[in-house]
Computed example of a mutant assay.
Amino acid sequence: MTYEGVLTKMQTELGNPIHYYLVFENSFLNLNQLLDKELEISFQGYQCLNCGKKKKIFRQGFCYDCFMASPAAGDWIMKPELSKAHLDIEDRDLEYEKKVQLQPHIVYLALSSEVKVGVTRKTQIPTRWIDQGAVQAIPIVEVPNRYLAGIAEVALKSQYADKTNWQKMLKNEVPPVDLVQERLRAGTFLPNEVQEYYSNQHPDLIDLHYPILTYPKKVSSLNLEKSPIYQGKLSGVKGQYLIFQDGTVFNVRTFEGYIVRILL
């Protein structure tokens, strides 16, 4: 069978294990059903996720022009502490920025390769943790806007990593850590503006289980521009990565906006 379309990040459904779907315009693939099966991925071209034009992808699924202009690619996306909608200050589109920034956000600890601090909109839990390949996660504090979450994250970066080591995550090299205790410790480093939202009564610790037959001992990242055709046997899915039996891993998120053909 043949499937073709523009890559977007895999859709997920919480379960034991998590269910993964590649969704195209007119079809979708349930990746859990493809474990231990051969598939071929081939690069066919580009389509910007914002303007829809067949232009080379620059970053985050956007062509260069859209990346530089779209409010969905503003600096505050990656650096929440730069959010200014709460001050009624526009970056690129104040209406859009208010909609995204002025809603409940969660500052959390996640265990994927090591203990990591992060920020996400409340509506994106547990999706955000799944996308990072976390095996456990716990909220530290819920705040009413993105700015407060951002300054809390900045304060906690002195104690915790803020990025996942993707190679360790994919090889399942995860240290044993008590996230409940780490959350209590993290609470002592929160800035004054955030302290009123923190409670010593910890929320539920979330465990996440991925559809993986075997973890690779070594990983090699597939780059569609350097290797436009790849064939391999799927052995697992974790984070936003497809894991193949030969140790090749494919980060779907990295190649958003790429048109691919998948042969089963």
Rank of each mutant, 00 (worst) to 15 (best):
Y230L: 02
T188R: 06
L224Q: 01
Q136G: 09
N192C: 00
I243W: 10
V6R: 14
M1C: 14
I18V: 15
V141E: 06
L94Q: 00
Q195S: 06
L205R: 07
L213P: 07
T188M: 03
Q195I: 05
R121S: 11
V117M: 02
L222Y: 09
Y147E: 00
S42Q: 06
V249P: 12
N26M: 15
E173V: 14
R128G: 08
F58Y: 10
V23L: 12
D246V: 13
C66P: 03
Q132E: 15
C63W: 03
Y3A: 08
K54R: 11
I130S: 05
Q181K: 15
V194Q: 05
V154Q: 13
Y21K: 15
E81C: 01
Y46H: 13
S83G: 02
A152E: 02
G236N: 11
I262M: 09
D65P: 03
Q167P: 00
L34Q: 13
G74K: 01
F24Y: 13
V249A: 12
S158A: 15
K218W: 02
Q159N: 07
W76C: 04
V100N: 00
P126K: 07
K226H: 07
Q44I: 06
P126C: 11
G187I: 08
P216E: 04
T254P: 05
G45Q: 05
I229Y: 11
T12A: 15
T164E: 12
N200I: 06
T123A: 05
N172A: 07
Y20P: 00
I140Y: 01
L190D: 07
V117P: 00
D131G: 10
E95H: 01
F24N: 03
T188C: 01
V194W: 11
F24H: 13
Q47W: 09
E38S: 14
G257D: 08
Q159F: 12
I262Q: 02
K54C: 12
L190F: 08
K157C: 15
L224D: 01
A72C: 03
K37Q: 14
R253A: 10
D204F: 05
L49M: 12
E38P: 03
F250R: 02
N50A: 14
S235W: 15
P175V: 08
V154C: 02
A134D: 06
L213S: 08
E173H: 07
F24I: 03
T254Y: 04
K79Y: 12
E225A: 04
K79F: 11
R128C: 06
L205T: 04
K53M: 08
P139A: 10
Q201E: 12
Q124A: 07
F255E: 02
E193H: 06
L109N: 02
K226M: 08
V6N: 10
N165I: 09
S227Q: 12
V143L: 13
I259W: 11
V174D: 00
I206V: 11
Q44Y: 09
V143G: 07
D88N: 01
T120M: 09
A161M: 10
G74N: 05
F62S: 09
Q44F: 10
L208F: 13
G257N: 07
K116L: 05
I106Y: 00
V219E: 02
T127F: 04
L184F: 08
V119E: 01
N223S: 12
P175N: 11
L87M: 02
L14M: 15
I140P: 03
V119S: 03
P139R: 09
Q101W: 07
V252Y: 13
